[in-house]
Design a protein around this nucleic acid. Structure first.
Lengths: 178, 178
DNA sequence: ATTTCTAAGTCAATAAGACTGACATAAAAC
DNA sequence: GTTTTATGTCAGTCTTATTGACTTAGAAAT
């Protein structure tokens, strides 16, 4: 028995495929820690202003999908109308978000950020962008491509259409859905 | 098939460095969607049993750092004693977690999962492992390496020592801290 | 034109999960 | 023997989210 030395052939299929228990567990923990720290910075800024993470999410998607409807935002965020409404009411009251009546369908309320809203959005996303920027720069382009691929694969099929940018405009999808 | 179209045009430094506004924004949204869907499966299982995400986190880290102290768990999770205590009380009451008095320091309560606890942990992590496994397999080993690098870089410096596996054992750190 | 459906908004009640602050106990450290 | 540490607990608060019921306005269908 040659038990002393581990030959490369001794690796099973899952090990060669980087799918060991250890690596999957590390993946789970990476998601937990990275997400927590990623949201930590804006959370602190929001807290000072009496807002929460829900406000950030609304502000983010209104900023990047200007003119999105309330129903569209509910769909992207996967929250209930009641949850979103409370958040939206505050943001409108505080003059960070405006509503305009839809042109083709006047029941719709099209959402936009005010200047004040844009300012807060920039302030909130700055630390996240900086964190990503630093991580991307350190890890390099190939690592970034891998990061994007894996996260994209981890998403539910239905959620992928909400992703703006590289994989098709979400706004178009939403308008098509009407 | 997701990164199909790429226009070969003039790129500035940031674009070559994959640090365009667009790519940073997509990174932000990937984190949001992937994390939400990643936690969605266990959330449903927890819900059926009257537990929440906080219970899952406790169970996960007790499973993978058996004998961890209450203070150690508070440190890893970055929650308050009061928050953790409510969760822990339920898990002990429901016989998923046991406490044993520390041998060297009898003030400490060393946490372990019972068989029942191990079963629930396996049930909760199964969909997450499967999701990761599928994503890793589809994206390939290089992408997985990139995923890990970027997430690791995104974490706060202080959090990195809590990561088990590839980058040093967290358990040792915790024991050293005592 | 009337009915029906849809988009949005609101009220009420509930719950998980987190927080702060205050306080208690037991054991270790000095 | 005093102080510090580890744990546990009580009380109160806050944010986010839920479900359910109901209203208003406008669009669509007949």
């Amino acid at each position: 028995m040659r038990s002393a030395i581990r030959k490369p052939q001794a690796m099973n299929a899952d090990q060669r495929l980087f799918l060991t228990d250890e690596q999957l567990r590390t993946g789970i923990e990476l998601m937990f820690f990275a997400y927590r720290d990623f949201t930590g910075d804006p959370d602190r800024i929001l807290d000072e202003r009496g807002y929460g993470r829900a406000h950030h999410r609304a502000i983010h998607f209104i900023r990047h999908r200007p003119g999105i409807t309330v129903a569209g935002l509910i769909d992207v965020l996967s929250v209930t109308k009641q949850s979103l409404n409370r958040v939206l009411r505050q943001l409108i009251e505080d003059e960070l978000v405006t509503q305009t009546v839809g042109e083709t369908d006047r029941r719709q309320r099209l959402l936009h950020l005010t200047e004040k809203g844009e300012e807060l959005e920039a302030l909130l996303s700055a630390p996240q962008r900086e964190r990503l920027r630093r991580a991307f720069l350190t890890a390099g382009p190939d690592a970034v491509a891998g990061f994007r691929e894996v996260l994209l694969e981890m998403m539910d099929d239905g959620a992928r259409r909400h992703l703006g940018g590289g994989a098709g405009r979400a706004q178009d999808d939403e308008e098509r859905r009407g």
